[in-house]
Every structure is written in C-alpha cells, then in structure tokens.
Amino acid sequence: MDFLIEEYMKVHLAQMKPILGNLEKNAGKHFEIIEQAVEEGCDLVVFPELSLTGYYLLDLVYDVAMDETHPVYQRFLEYSNEIAIVFGFVYESREKLFYNAASFVHRGKTVHLHKKVYLPDYTLFEEGRYFAAGNSIEAFDTEFGKCGILVCEDVFHLSSLYILSQSGVQNIIIPSNSPARGNLEQGHDASNTWQTSNRYIAGVLTVNLVFVNRVGVEDGVSFWGGSEAYDAKGRRLAAADMFREEGVTVEVDHDSVRRARIETPFLRDEKSFIVRNFLNEEGCGK
C-alpha cells in the first residue's frame, strides 16, 4: 500500500492556446505558467495534448519534433525539480519515428513518456498520416500515487482504461485537443461526450481524473477547453470555461480513492479472468 505524505495534491490545469509550430514561443508560455503554478504552491501542472507545438501541424511535424536531449526538453527537466509537469510534444524516436507524445517529468527526470496509441484518422483528424502510433498503455509510479496518461482519443478505447485500472492507477491524466463541432441544440457533441466520459471513468474506475483540453482556433477549428477534474466518486471538483485561455487550480484529495473503493468496490470485484478467458478462447476473430 502506498502511504502518501500529503493529503492533497494541488494540480494546475493549464488550459492554453499554443502557437502553431512555434516551439520556442510555446516553451516560453509553458515556463511562465509553470512559474506561476510553483508560486501558487502546486504539486503538478498539466498542459494539453501537443501543447508545445499546436495541433494541425501537417508537414510541420518534422520541424517541431524533439527528444529528451533537446534544449527545450532539458528546460522542462530543470523546472521539474520544483514541480511535476505533464506536457505534450512531438517525440522523435531513435528509429526516426514521430509520435504524438506526453511526458510526465519530476525531480529532474522523465518519469513516464506516453506515446499516443489511438491516432484519430477520420473526419477532421489526420493523425495517422503524420504520426507513428504508440503500442503500450502503462501505469507509472509517482509521488502522488500510481498514475496513467491517456492522450485524447486513447480514452475512447475501453482497453486503455481497463489496462490502467488493472495496473492499479489512482490518477488518470488526460491531455487533450478536442475541437468543438456538431454544435446543435443540446450543446456541442464533443463536450457532451467528454464530460459524460470523464465522469463515468472517474466514478467507475474509482480514480481521480484530470482532463486538460486546449483552446484557440486553428484554420477555423475551435478547441473548446472546458478542462475539468473529478474525484474518485465521479464528482466534478473544478472546471475551466469553454473557449477561454485560463488556468484552474484544484486540490485533489488522495483519500477520495480510498473512500470510493470502500463504498463502491468495483475494482476489488473485477473478474479479470473473464477477460483473459474471452481473449484466449473466444474473442478476436472467432
């Protein structure tokens, strides 16, 4: 069992708009926000998906890609001595593959680098054309308990959630670039889907959940923001405005996971052998 020193983790949801393809300026913006978060006494600051680069990169992917040795990445590692940071960028691997990635950095080290597994490549998305897909979903240990990062579309695959849950995560961090669309009578489809999904995940997996979505417009596509945090009972702790660049700081109670798992012990009762049997014997292609 993990004993945590602090009762709360103070998380800053950095709902921002990056400049498309300008690594240096975006890095500067990150550092300003990080410094403010440090000043506020935050333990963790979470930026959106591709926060260092912007979303519709197209052929800019190859210009903004970097690895841990890049000076900008090194600056993040320096800052991480003061605060844990999750940020989004294009990761260029040694094999010269380009990933839509998010890093969790803390105490001068990369604690975890997640490569987005599910690259949406339909309607207004074309990530599959430019990025290599990650091939694992992994939980990782942090000073705030076990965490998992899912980048945007990763969330909409139940297997991602299942793997993180079975790996024992207490916190799920979701950097996102969700565009507003399907704007009909009932509010737009994207925010409805995300809010429903976030609440469901937090409550059913009994985890704390931090969702950070960007704002701003790229070639007519508006990213809606609405970043939010939930506790392990599925209660919304805080939410940022839609469409506006604004940071929100929230205190996430570590104990909410414990309380939720006593009251609603879905994790305890999960019978993963059923899934194993299904995959081994009947599933997939039969």
């Binding site: 400049i19 704007n183 009909l184 009578e185 417009v217 508006s222 839609m242």
Partner: peptide
C-alpha cells in the same frame, strides 16, 4: 438543424477575433 445559439455565437465571435488578431 436547430442551433444552440449562445454557443454558436461564442464559437463564431471567438473565431473572428482569434484568426484576425493572431496574424
């Protein structure tokens, strides 16, 4: 076909402002 009018105005006004001022 019916619109959420507040939200649509938000999106469109923000679009004009953002795409004009950013350049």
């Amino acid at each position: 076909m019916k619109l959420n009018l507040d939200l649509t105005v938000d999106i469109l006004a923000n679009f004009i402002k953002d795409e004009t001022e950013k350049i």
